[in-house]
Design a binder for these strands. Structure first.
Lengths: 338, 338
DNA sequence: ATGAAAGCGCTAACAT
DNA sequence: ATGTTAGCGCTTTCAT
């Protein structure tokens, strides 16, 4: 059985209130002598506070919920890690939940987290969500949204990434390296993210007064196979491109493969760049230059916003003025390593 | 403010005890009438139980801790997912913790989880751990070990994978496909896992009465670059191999690349197989045949052992007879898709 | 500077 | 079939 403050109080011959205050550093006016005595006994007896009992009265748990589609999807581990790092820094714990983009599971998790009295929820859902259920709308717990914006009450913060700007940066980088005819291989276009990336590509070309022809754009899916196939198509069609920008790293990896098979040298003949969605490139193809999604930073920032809000640093804000952090400018380009 | 059983009791004109029993399905002898009345009120008032209060008296939290080195390491998301799936099935939540193989952080998490009164901890640490600290040894919470065995008190279960057997299976598979001169490209040999895999390779050859020459074995690191380099070495040395087995999927991917560059066809000329450590192969190189680590199953099984033990299905066991699940036989070979 | 006492919301004997 | 009661371990006024 664990030692309780009651036992410590008895051994130290003080009241439980005194012990409690000392253990919580609320010992402004408690004599050195008693403090030391109590602290020593607590240590000796290996006292471990019962956070259930504490939470019951303080109404907070130092626990936050992290709801995301699937930790196995390589997009999420970094977010989860960033959030956990920031949380543990302030001694918060994270309960993590996988929804598989299933509304019912999502609701169920919101319920469970509410019952567990989490101090807040970090919501990171990747799928397009048409509606939300009553349950989610009723949620009393402060919410931070990651990666996708969504209209929900009780959202006290958002962490989004500016895909348009990132894509633009990537293309500008290619431009700065002297490439002029940049082809774009997109993944599936059914997300806002995908559209933003294409948008950024176009913008970058326009701003450099380069023509942006539809011939240089191919739309498919976020797979290396597609990157490879699309590249071969470009080659077959005789499009005079000198660089390829892939909608994500998988596509870029596929493109590199096809290029090499065709006897083309990267980056001497053709420049290749990818949007590093899932940090795969650095492991499999260290020679690929990528623009890195700040997933870790997003998770970190989300936890930070949440904790600040919980601990009152954001109290004065208007109810519907959710603090927003757009991390687009923090995107970094990782150059090839060899 | 949340509704409490007290308020429901008042509105239903019964005692809190009655409400509690009904809400917990301990209503063996409670009239239909009251039950329905209470249930209805609870629903109407949107009652959400306060698990803090409940846990304070029941001494369990329906929460389990998951301690692992780093969720960003592609080895762990599947484990985490498996554990979460099994846990949520029984309405358990998971608090997840990243230690970076740091003993101090590990200890700190054990403390925090203890304070949070988790019902058990799933421990999955990848690094070689020389000693354990007092803190960990003192841990009162039941522990399940994943992937690496380790001597610790309070371990009530282990989920390990039989790498030797798996490696053997992989080589046998290659043998069954008609390959006879199988080269092995190992990663770093400083883990038991690596040694077991090499061992399995040798065993398989021996059992088929094939010579196992040192010339066919190269030791390096778990990177695609090494797989590629080693393959080129084999080629340069003129070793007459007809298949390559990679210590992990990254190595195998590298090998395939080098082979293709050399104009060799996979699998017609040369068979290639990899140990699918990190489920990367299926995304980047769908044509690679792998032997799949049952990471998901390991996580699932670990949570299952833990929950069974918590809920008493394993009570009768001897103290030091930790339930062990060796998942080697459940390893599966995933054939190339095209 | 310290103690007494009243809960936080719930469960679990034990009564009735 | 339902109520009474005594906590679980802790924090927090309010006294002293």
């Amino acid at each position: 059985m664990q030692v309780t403050i009651k036992e410590i109080a008895k051994e130290a011959e003080v009241s439980t209130a005194t012990v409690s205050m000392i253990l919580n550093n609320k010992d402004k006016n408690i004599s050195e002598a008693t403090r030391n005595r109590v602290l020593e006994i607590a240590k000796k007896r290996n006292y471990i506070p019962n956070t259930m009992a504490r939470s019951l009265v303080t109404r907070h748990t130092r626990t936050i919920g992290l709801i995301m589609p699937d930790i196995v999807n390589p997009f999420f581990p970094e977010i989860a890690r960033g959030a956990e790092d920031r949380a543990s820094k302030s001694r918060y714990s994270i309960i993590y939940c996988n929804t598989d983009d299933n509304l019912i599971r999502e609701d169920s998790y919101v319920d469970i987290l509410t019952e567990k009295m989490v101090d807040g929820i970090i919501f990171t859902h990747s799928a397009d969500r048409k509606g939300s259920t009553e349950r989610l709308k009723r949620c009393q717990v402060p919410i931070i949204l990651i990666d996708r914006d969504y209209d929900l009450p009780n959202v006290i913060g958002k962490v989004l990434v500016d895909n348009t700007k990132a894509s633009q940066m990537a293309v500008n980088y290619l431009l700065s390296k002297g490439y002029r005819k940049i082809a774009y291989i997109a993944g599936s276009m059914n997300t806002q993210t995908a559209q933003d990336r294409l948008e950024g590509y176009k913008k970058a070309l326009e701003e450099s007064n380069l023509e942006c022809s539809q011939r240089y754009i191919k739309i498919g899916e976020y797979k290396s196979q597609w990157g490879s196939d699309a590249t071969k198509e470009f080659l077959r069609e005789g499009i005079p491109f000198d660089a390829i920008f892939g909608g994500n790293d998988l596509i870029a990896i596929g493109a590199m493969k096809a290029l090499k098979e065709a006897g083309l040298k990267v980056p001497d003949d053709i420049g290749v760049m990818g949007f590093d969605d899932i940090y795969m490139s650095s492991i499999v193809e260290p020679s690929l230059t990528t623009i890195k999604q700040p997933n870790y930073e997003m998770g970190y920032k989300a936890a930070e916003l949440l904790i600040n809000s919980i601990e009152g640093h954001g109290e004065q804000r208007e109810a519907h003025d959710a603090e927003k952090a757009i991390l687009g400018t923090e995107l970094t380009i990782r150059e090839s390593t060899r």
